[in-house]
């Protein structure tokens, strides 16, 4: 490779002749770039193919078989997928996944926007940002474990509520409140994370835009709607995709809030990730890797579709400033 690049002919070529420009009017810089394309991208592509495409391909292949991971593989064709969609438990998992994604996402982003609105204008905002960011540093396990203590009927949360005159607080840890609790924890950790990213973009917006708007009589909300939102749109769009992808992978929170030492969480609180886990590691029987991977493929397709649609919906002309 290197020798081609060092080829001295390039500079020594006679000018004015049409032969060197045989590649249809491509300039030397462009040609150089094209030559460099593969050497530069090949390592990344290789890593991507080995670590991502190959496992997904393998999973797709496995999803067409009945397999316990050890013995022979029985060909099933699309049967695993048909059974999967006939399983009401899987359909509930899909709905739960979408619920966490849409409801959790809406609350997270509404809160993030509200915080952005406040943080831009407030003093000590760097400190406030660190405080907001802190929950996302803490491992989800800690919340699951702490919740048992914090939200128990005589725990600190209810004691605090009592001070405010709430005498019959909800049964926080009951099975009915499982998904709302997971959602709450999720929103709490994610809000700080996305606020930090969005604020980083907002910091780049020149102050004079805000000053001009203020002079024109725009209130804080209008400044947010007409300056912050359009100028930070690219970053917000990326955040939305990041949220979508990460919400599908929520797993340990459900397991920790809903699972006990002896059993999986109640089936009505499963999302697709938990469903995949229970199929891959069932109790007292061999793994059902075919259905597990089929469920994983189904959720991969779902998140891909949603991401593509989301990207389309969020596409805007970038604002130059």
């Amino acid at each position: 490779m290197a020798t081609t690049i060092d080829d001295p002919l390039r500079t020594g070529a006679p000018r004015g002749r049409s032969a060197p420009a045989s590649r249809a009017g491509v300039g030397p810089l462009e040609r150089q770039r094209r030559r460099m394309f593969w050497p530069f991208t090949a390592p990344a592509l290789t890593v991507y193919a080995v670590l991502f495409i190959a496992p997904v391909g393998y999973a797709l292949w496995t999803s067409l078989y009945k397999w316990d991971g050890m013995g022979a593989m029985d060909w099933r064709g699309p049967q695993n997928y048909i059974l999967l969609f006939r399983d009401p438990r899987f359909r509930t998992s899909l709905v739960n996944t979408l619920e966490l994604m849409v409801i959790g996402g809406t609350i997270t982003f509404v809160l993030s926007f509200a915080l952005t609105l406040v943080l831009r204008e407030m003093r000590a905002r760097l400190f406030a940002r660190s405080v907001l960011f802190f929950p996302s540093l803490v491992n989800g396990m800690v919340f699951g474990i702490a919740a048992g203590f914090l939200f128990s009927p005589t725990g600190p949360v209810n004691q605090a509520l009592k001070l405010f005159g709430v005498t019959t607080p909800p049964k926080w840890l009951s099975t009915d409140n499982l998904l709302p609790m997971v959602l709450g924890t999720l929103v709490w950790t994610a809000t700080g994370y996305y606020t930090s990213i969005i604020m980083a973009a907002v910091d780049q917006i020149p102050d004079y835009l805000y000053e001009a708007a203020e002079l024109d009589g725009a209130g804080p909300f209008q400044r947010f709607r007409h300056i912050t939102l359009p100028c930070a749109w690219d970053v917000i769009a990326v955040c939305a995709v990041l949220w979508t992808v990460s919400s599908v992978k929520i797993f340990e929170l459900i397991l920790l809030y809903g699972g006990s030492t002896n059993a999986y969480p109640p089936v009505s609180s499963w999302n697709t990730a938990v469903y995949v886990y229970t199929e891959a590691f069932p109790q007292g029987t061999v793994p059902r890797l075919g259905t597990a991977t089929a469920a994983a493929m189904a959720s991969l397709v779902m998140v891909t579709l949603i991401t593509v649609v989301l990207r389309r919906l969020l596409r805007r002309e970038p604002v130059e400033y």
């Binding site: 438990r89 009951s174 099975t175 059993a263 999986y264 109640p266 089936v267 009505s268 229970t278 199929e279 069932p282 109790q283 007292g284 029987t285």
Partner: peptide, 21 residues
Amino acid sequence: DGVSGSWLPKVLNENYLDLWH
């Protein structure tokens, strides 16, 4: 009686918790 697989989580467990609660 040694029941295995997903029967416990998918059939019995949550229904039983509803009864138990």
